[in-house]
Amino acid sequence: MTRPALRRLLDEIGPVDATGIEERVAKYTTRSIKKQSKVFGLKLAVTMVDLTTLEGKDTPGKVASLCRKALCPHPGDDIPRVAAVCVYPSMVKHAARHVKGSGVRIASVATAFPSGQAPLKTRLAEVRQAVADGADEIDMVINRGAFLAGELGLVQDEIAAVVEACGESTLKVILETSELETYDHIRAASFLAMRVLRPGDFIKTSTGKTSGNATLGNNQVMLDAIRDHFLDTGTEIAMKPAGGIKSAKQALQFLVAVKETLGDAWLNNTRYRFGASSLLNDLLRQLETQRSGAYQAPYTFSDDSSGY
């Protein structure tokens, strides 16, 4: 059953051709990217990683180790730094000690991540605290309960309130696509968010805390939404798939989707990010394989904090 408010929004923005999307993204996995193009793509993907640790067992020490990995992913002159470290709000001040001023940004999840089930006042206070502690970017979750209940106005107002609470910091809006159930819903939620976001803010697929993660399919629906929104309004919204992207091969396929949907303007880390932790070492592993000509063992690469 589609709620009236959602029906109206879908009429306005147009529905998603699910079969078409699936067929289109299946083609992305058939591109053959070799040699210099592969190295270019792998390095680009490294610069787009939001190196993430979001666990109950995070400690200042673990975050310090994550930050060191972010600043120097692997010895060697030609390996770039990652885009950001992504931590819980209580860890922002610890991360700030290591990466502030280095060019690696600090992203913090906030708004009662991952469920978002807390009073708005609490969620906004969390955002303000994270920003005050030094977070350059805030990853918020939308109120999926309200969205599915058809209270679209409420969802949008809450996003707008968080935009305001962010101040100068960039906002990333997590739609949690696995809980939205259909591509139509993902497209609708994307538009709800984008209409109150500032240029350079992100929409993001998932928290990584549910069974469903970023897929080429939901990534494509959101990229299409960003393109349509840009063509309508001229506002450039950025995109961050998160969760489940573990291999360099997958990362390259996502980059193909960006290139073929939004073009070169989106192929940089102010417009596209990967929320991931284990992806980074696979990217490094493939880069080293390309450099040395020999397949590498995974233990050649330093573990970030996920290893202990």
Partner: peptide, 8 residues
Amino acid sequence: PTFATHEH
């Protein structure tokens, strides 16, 4: 050759 060089 891949048997010989594979680091793992």
